[in-house]
Nucleic acid binder design. Structure first.
Lengths: 187, 187
DNA sequence: GTCTATATTGTGATAGAC
DNA sequence: GTCTATCACAATATAGAC
């Protein structure tokens, strides 16, 4: 792997585990095996490197979600697929956690990929819920954008519950509760 | 206000906005108006002061939630009251945000109040959902602990959506979606 | 109780040799 | 492209005067 590549990957790991304020250039250098000089040769500084790392993480998350969304099945099945897809629950969401980082949220550059990713997620889910409504799968009084927000929030909040309790079980409980509420009436 | 009091309050504000790793003793001293010497006279260091601050924040959050839970009304109405209670949405949850702080989660001392608060919330909500089930208010197939987790997750995740989009509207959308899913069948 | 001085290590970066 | 100085400032304290 090239040096810029190793720097970006190391930064992604550190941002995921410690956030932006908790990630120092020195830690990035240690984790990537690159020296001081290399890092500042390839990137202008910590914000520049963090931006590259965040963008890549956002792209990966999007590609991964897209796979769930475009699978076969009813709207409910696709939402269930998204909710139950494998996750590193105790590590949290590598994009969502950045919303709690003051230095990420404060500036436009680092915040943009975060905003776009979460907004895109809500939009895709809203589209799926609308398809479910059109198919008569869900109660007609449900509002697609609201249900989409509830689904994304349950996932993001599920990470909080899991980390608070120290167990992925809390995440799973929240997801199962949501699926029970969302389930098409089979009676 | 006494000096220890001002130190604790300043730390609470900073922890809320910047997290534990983002909060320095110097910033606490500036915000509280206390000097270096005072801070280290009243507290052994940053972790000690943070513990006092986190405990107080957790106690306040619990008291505030208790007010919603113990109000009059059906189970659905009490859950709705909790979900719609006034919040500083864009600032996030002062307790939940600490779950993303590596130095808080890593140690038992600082993590304990966070764990206890979130676990307590889930327990109280599960109790209310059970009451709703007993009263025939909810579908019998719902599992109280799961719905409770979904409710808390929707709130915690709602903060993430709001901060990602820069608007409290995203939080409100998630809550309305959940309430629509949870609403007793009126037909 | 509060203040100032001092200390060690880390942060985030620049400069210039190789 | 990478390395080793070097730098100014912040983080997180300790020591001891007042």
């Amino acid at each position: 792997m090239s040096t810029p590549e190793r720097l970006i990957e190391a930064t992604r790991e550190l941002l995921w585990d410690r956030g932006y304020v908790g990630t120092s250039p020195k830690a990035i250098q240690r984790q990537s095996g690159a020296g001081q000089g290399s890092m500042y040769h390839h990137f202008t500084g910590k914000p520049d490197l963090a931006l590259a790392a965040i963008r890549r993480t956002a792209d990966e998350l999007r590609a991964s979600a897209e796979a769930s969304f475009s699978s076969e099945g009813t709207a409910y099945e696709r939402i269930r697929g998204y909710l139950l897809r494998q996750r590193d629950v105790l590590r949290g969401c590598p994009v969502g956690r950045l919303t709690m980082d003051p230095d990420v949220i404060a500036g436009d550059a680092l915040r943009a990929p975060v905003t776009e990713t979460i907004d895109w997620l809500r939009g895709e889910l809203a589209r799926i819920v609308q398809e479910g409504l059109d198919a008569g799968e869900f109660s007609a009084h449900l509002v697609p954008e609201e249900i989409a927000a509830t689904v994304v929030a349950t996932v993001q909040g599920g990470y909080v519950l899991a980390r608070a309790s120290g167990s992925p079980a809390a995440f799973d409980a929240g997801v199962r509760g949501l699926l029970a509420l969302l389930a098409p009436r089979t009676a």
